[in-house]
Design a protein around this nucleic acid. Sequence first.
DNA 1: AATGAATGAGGGTTCATTCAT
DNA 2: CATGAATGAACCCTCATTCAT
Lengths: 204, 204, 204, 204
Amino acid sequence: MQANRSVTEAARRRQIVAATIEVLAEVGHGATTFTRIARWAGLSSTGLISYHFADKADLLDEVLAEVVRAAVAFMGPRIEAAEGHVGTLSARIAANVELVAEHPAHVRALREVLAAPGRSAPADDATAGLTDRVGALAALLRDGQAHGAFGSFDPELMALAVTGAIDAVVAVPPAGEEQVRRAAHELAATFVRATAPDAPEPRP
Amino acid sequence: MQANRSVTEAARRRQIVAATIEVLAEVGHGATTFTRIARWAGLSSTGLISYHFADKADLLDEVLAEVVRAAVAFMGPRIEAAEGHVGTLSARIAANVELVAEHPAHVRALREVLAAPGRSAPADDATAGLTDRVGALAALLRDGQAHGAFGSFDPELMALAVTGAIDAVVAVPPAGEEQVRRAAHELAATFVRATAPDAPEPRP
Amino acid sequence: MQANRSVTEAARRRQIVAATIEVLAEVGHGATTFTRIARWAGLSSTGLISYHFADKADLLDEVLAEVVRAAVAFMGPRIEAAEGHVGTLSARIAANVELVAEHPAHVRALREVLAAPGRSAPADDATAGLTDRVGALAALLRDGQAHGAFGSFDPELMALAVTGAIDAVVAVPPAGEEQVRRAAHELAATFVRATAPDAPEPRP
Amino acid sequence: MQANRSVTEAARRRQIVAATIEVLAEVGHGATTFTRIARWAGLSSTGLISYHFADKADLLDEVLAEVVRAAVAFMGPRIEAAEGHVGTLSARIAANVELVAEHPAHVRALREVLAAPGRSAPADDATAGLTDRVGALAALLRDGQAHGAFGSFDPELMALAVTGAIDAVVAVPPAGEEQVRRAAHELAATFVRATAPDAPEPRP
DNA sequence: AATGAATGAGGGTTCATTCAT
DNA sequence: CATGAATGAACCCTCATTCAT
């Protein structure tokens, strides 16, 4: 009789976060207002949002956390299942592209939130893990280079390029699951080629 | 002594446009308000902006035009000087990366303006040329494939990847002109590798 | 103890509408601003008005409705109590004149609202009934002519004249209830005379 | 070489006044801005208007004077040509109605100016003569009553009614000169009837 | 836990007016 | 005599946030 206090609250918060994700994905960060969120969620006042979240920034933090949580849940197993440096790189790229087919609104919302002006660095590790995709990727590439799995290139720059390419590919609305899978494979192949070990001296 | 009729107006407009570019680059489109622009430009009232520009959209149009003009002036010669499909691809990537060293604020402002909600398609060709970088790149890649200069891959997807990679590389604040040039070359090399003709059968 | 959900809102809306009527009557439509309304109503911000009314047009619609409601409530019984065409004409004129003694601000506000630029035709019948006083009057006159109650004249023109005369008489600030009643009777008598059946041939 | 200083100025003032009359008639007082007037007159800046007129009120005063001047020039001869009290009343009404066919914009502009909030009493006599049509008419009616030309009624009230009726009839856009003349005659006839001497006791 | 009325700052825009040229 | 750039107040409206209930 007592314990469901926070159950109710948690449900409300989740409802509001979910609505915010949809609104962010649909109208972008600039037009994401409490009024619009309340309307989407079927709430009759913006006061309720302020009641459950200290701040607009607080709400967006929660949105970020939720989006990251879902993304990690989706990508984690796929990446861990991969073997070898090349395989991991490949899996990372493919999983990231495929993520958009599973949670299109989440991905757009993520970009909107991160692009919001005045956002400070994320707090927890999981968030950083997704947010700092570049760093994680660079580490993988550097390690692979040390093991001779990749050629010689600037790992940070390549990580940046990979991440940017994924985001760009993901930004165009995908047409069908099949096409998403194809794009995932092809993008992975592209960077496998780009990171391939340097060609040996042509034999005489 | 008389001929400079509207020299004042032109100067003010340029001043305001320049200030808007800086503000856009710094705080993003959503937070780019007349008040902030006026403060940045050292104007004492937002009314002055409204006096010189019909609309906020009008101002942003002018910003877009200016940014595109500068970008075309910078990249055009570099691209045209290149020879061959691979050379052109290389030059395009390098020029784009180097652009950010020349006009860092311009590049960020461009993205902010284009990302603004409710923006319609650009009118003139020069703008479209810069805006639709993906299309232009895809055409180059497709043509190169037909001439055997590139391997087999989806040109649209690759164009998207190249563009995204450039933007990502460009997004991090560059440290020094030397480093920019290095990044330009390396990124170009990366995609030259990624688009290289399929390896011939190893000779026996 | 709970049932008064929106009693506060309704009261505020009524308060704002009432204030708007007074302001309209005093300074005219062009100078009727949210600021002036708020000041008159004793509100501390114009935001409150925007909170309760979607639009300035929305507020003016409400004003129109309220004014019409009051006018119909006042004039309706008086007109219906009259008998015969001449009696009805008389009652209509008198009631209209007397209305101004009861709700002087309402009448001026009505004119201001209807004269506002960009107002579209009224929706409901009651409003139209008050708005299209000319049409209603013309119909009465035409019907009366068909029954021999009135002489021969252009009904539309006469209706226009009657309406204009009423408005003019009503426009001057009345001095005392007694004088209003006198004016009402005399104006009615004037148009009873003006619309009287054509004099019969003098008997030999 | 010197004398045409004020000639130029007078011409400019007339041009601006004329433009203002048109704008007033077209968009009403509330929307009559310096910008719109300048655009209509083909001027490139509102500064020119401020240069020639001390104030917006000053400009509107000039407009009023011009409108009155034209109206007096039009109506004066027609009224003076009439004979007898009834004839003069008739002529006054007809001339007033016909005025609208000659200077439609002037008449609408006049109403707009007089309806403007915060207008004080007119200065010169000619203006007062037109502005205080009611007073002039009341004097005529009172004098006529003293000479037995009219019946018994309140002259002020009747004057008010006549004026209001004229304005109302004039307010509807006239369709053709013929119709205007018909309306003029009929309205005159209406009030001749309404002011007719009291019917004598029916002879036994 | 929830409501919704209220607030005040700030948004873009229009306006009459001033002033140096 | 004319210009047009500049100003600052006021316009309507939206927003995140507060608070009594």
